[in-house]
Design a protein around this nucleic acid. Structure first.
Lengths: 249, 249
DNA sequence: GAAATAGTGTCTCTCAGACATTATCCA
DNA sequence: TGGATAATGTCTGAGAGACACTATTTC
């Protein structure tokens, strides 16, 4: 915005045919699997292909546009409490020439962590949207495969040093449920005993409600204590992913 | 980009008066202090105020636009090797309505780590650009204070788990020089002995050149061994910042 | 009773940080 | 010689991971 031509009063509307959109990578956990919200495209290009929900930015902040798109596609209403527990953060912008074959489009991608939301209802704007396990979300339209991959890597990292795993659960949860969130996002099983001790040892991660579940697990086991999210914004020390050998160094 | 009106062939040029720019937070270390490249604005709004270098996106990838702006402002030429060692990564996008009083501008901010570059030369496009210690970079134009703050936080974090500190040094460096990079970016002194042992213990962080400096330090001390950047892309284990009590938890 | 889960205890190894020590070099 | 820095050694406490174990609940 310091370009000389701009400062001289040049009107970019006359030449800058650049559109700005938001795309949302909304993640939730359904049946123990990490799922992403996708929409089915009805028109060219990429007709019939699946894509991330998104749309043009209106006269609103970028984050508000992302939340609006998410609300429209899920059929849920913002402000009515249904989306209050959704965590939203900016992922990055994607603007390579040619990523949209029609014109130059710069898309600001957002990442949303949501507790298990209902399946979008038919008959509404959201009729063409549905949740898809992330390992089945392939061959998306545009560069959405790349955006999704970046989103998953961001989500996996965020779980390490923030308490955002609680954004995937209900207001009250057991340590076992929290462990399943980590297992679903990271794609690996975690040792139950060590995880339990670790979570309780991080100050502010979770706080006890003093209550327990009504019954034990479906396949046996004692009633579990219930917790809610604590007030920590960062985990100290962090909950690091198991070390994998495919990392350099 | 899934908006119905768009799919119907609506031309956003007719209504979407949104400009896309890139802004660059270029960081380097001069005289042991972390500095950022700023330009002096010559026209309204914010005439006379300092701002981050930036400009309109042309028919190029976003990252290329950032590199081009950086080259223009520093007077260095990309492709001639002068900017090869610069690390560039996307920071995020800033697009609140009203952040530019003239029109809707969405700016994609980039973060650049550079070895000590020459002062931009007068007479060129870069005449109005200069390096400013980050703690003196206040009251910038637009929302650039926010962008700079986000950039510094990103940079501090990046040094923890990536070897990017070497992007601030020359091709060969001593452990002491590397420690000064960390000290400058983090704003705190680090224990020389522990830092030395830690750096050498992280696989792939640095590799020995087998040579030493020609002379010892200006104020005494033995000749130091020289190292170059290793092939690791992530540091395992990470080099964590000293724990500060002002963090939640 | 069998199986599964919640939760705790114990041991080992790694690592960060505090501190000490030796060697080397400049003024 | 004195001061500063490079590089290494030692000790301690925190924490991660492997494993074992008990208690509790469901089928």
């Amino acid at each position: 915005m310091d370009e000389t031509s701009f400062l001289a009063g040049y009107d970019p509307r006359k030449y800058a045919a650049v559109a700005v959109t938001v795309d949302v990578v909304a993640l939730t956990i359904r049946d123990g699997r990490l799922c992403v919200l996708l929409v089915e495209r009805g028109a060219q290009p990429f007709a019939g292909r699946r894509a991330l929900p998104g749309g043009f930015v209106k006269d609103e902040p970028l984050g508000a546009a992302a939340l609006r798109e998410l609300a429209e596609e899920t059929g849920l209403t913002p402000g009515a409490g249904e989306l209050d527990r959704v965590h939203l953060e900016q992922l990055g912008s994607y603007g390579d020439p040619g990523r949209d074959p029609r014109m130059r489009v710069v898309s600001v991608a957002y990442l949303a962590f949501a507790p298990s939301l209902p399946e979008p209802t038919a008959g509404s704007d959201a009729a063409r949207a549905y949740w898809v396990p992330v390992d089945e979300a392939k061959d998306l339209a545009f560069d959405h495969d790349t955006i999704l991959a970046d989103a998953l890597e961001r989500a996996r990292g965020k779980l390490e040093y923030t308490p955002l795993a609680t954004a995937f659960t209900g207001p009250e949860f057991t340590i076992g449920e929290l462990r399943q969130v980590y297992a679903a996002v990271w794609g690996e099983d975690l040792h139950a005993g060590n995880f339990h001790r670790k979570v309780l040892s991080v100050p502010g991660f979770v706080e006890s409600t003093g209550t327990t579940t009504a019954r034990g697990g479906d396949r046996g086991g004692p009633k579990a204590k219930l917790y809610r999210a604590g007030d920590a914004r960062l985990l100290h020390p962090a909950l690091l992913r198991p070390v994998r050998d495919d990392r350099v160094g």
